[in-house]
Nucleic acid binder design. Structure first.
Length: 292
DNA sequence: ATCCAGGATGTAT
DNA sequence: ATACATCATGGA
């Protein structure tokens, strides 16, 4: 086992592990007490979380100004990438427009960062997210990993990789429905097969501008404008993407009715101007704030 | 029981 | 382009 710690005091804007990995951006981190996304009375902040990527297990917790980690490999570069520890969060926060709702949301979770999740698990997660509650989306991804991923032993516990596109494409619709995916089962199967078969991926998407990329992602089954925005924001680092989900639409109706332009595309443009130079960050703070 | 959840799809207009 | 019904499932 390799271990290490990242000093958080040096990070501009700080960091908060719990809100970052339990704010509905990523569904591949598991609390070691198996209570991820459950409402708890605990103060939070010192839980161990675990994730698996490319066959490597990483456990991390935040304690005394450190992000401590234990892993099958040197986890520091992965943590920096996945948790966007390279973002200047101070600059992001300073740029939040002086608006009551936005400032309340920003102040509610100091140190919360966007994530930079791997493309395929992110795509599958948000295909599953349609008309689902956050905790259930997380449960669905855990079910997929347990049933179709590869088990890895680490420090006396069994972890699972997220299934490869081929592994998910080989599942039957009935099997996926048994995991609680409901009508999203064929979407997951079909889109996994598409990606395994060479459909558009991160490298291609990086060459497109934001709205082109959003449109291109809709080629996947079960991916509309909103899910595409989630993948662009939480995986591809398009910080201008603003997923218009039920919570944000509610906020628009209540606080920014002038931004409701009828269509998704036009409302998106209007709200991106309202949210300032880092609209994706602001969206995620508002979402987490309203949902809690 | 009834309603709702990080919506997308197919169909009709 | 826009409006509408329909799609599973679990939790409150």
């Amino acid at each position: 086992m390799e271990t290490g710690a990242i000093a958080l005091a040096d990070l501009p804007g700080g960091f908060d592990l719990q809100s970052t990995v339990e704010s509905g951006q990523t569904f591949r981190w598991q609390r070691e007490d198996d209570r991820t996304y459950e409402r708890t009375n605990a103060h939070g902040g010192t839980h161990w979380y675990a994730t698996v990527h490319e066959g490597e297990v990483i456990r991390a917790r935040q304690c005394d100004g450190l992000l401590e980690w234990e892993s099958t490999t040197d986890a520091e570069p992965m943590l920096v990438e996945w948790l966007r520890l390279d973002d200047d969060l101070t600059a992001v926060m300073d740029a939040v427009p002086p608006d009551p709702l936005l400032e309340r949301a920003r102040a509610a979770y100091p140190g919360m960062r966007l994530v930079r999740d791997p493309f395929f698990p992110c795509l599958m997660s948000f295909i599953c997210s349609a008309q689902m509650r956050v905790r259930r989306i997380h449960r669905m991804q855990s079910n997929l990993a347990r049933e179709y991923g590869e088990p890895i032993e680490f420090d006396g516990r069994t972890y699972h990789t997220f299934p490869t596109p081929e592994q998910l494409a080989s599942a039957t619709e009935a099997e996926l429905r048994d995991l609680g995916l409901g009508y999203r089962a064929p979407y997951v199967r079909e889109s996994a097969a598409m990606y395994a078969d060479g459909a558009i991926g991160p490298a291609d998407l990086r060459e497109l501008d934001y709205e082109e990329a959003r449109e291109a992602l809709r080629a996947y089954v079960g991916v509309g404008e909103k899910v595409a925005d989630c993948v662009l924001l939480f995986s591809l680092g398009r910080l201008d993407a603003v997923p218009l989900d039920t919570w944000i639409r509610r906020a628009i109706a209540e606080h920014y009715p002038h931004c409701d332009r009828g269509s998704y595309g036009e409302t998106s443009r209007a709200i991106r101007e309202e949210f300032g130079p880092y609209p994706g960050y602001v969206q995620t703070y508002v979402f987490h704030y309203l949902r809690e």
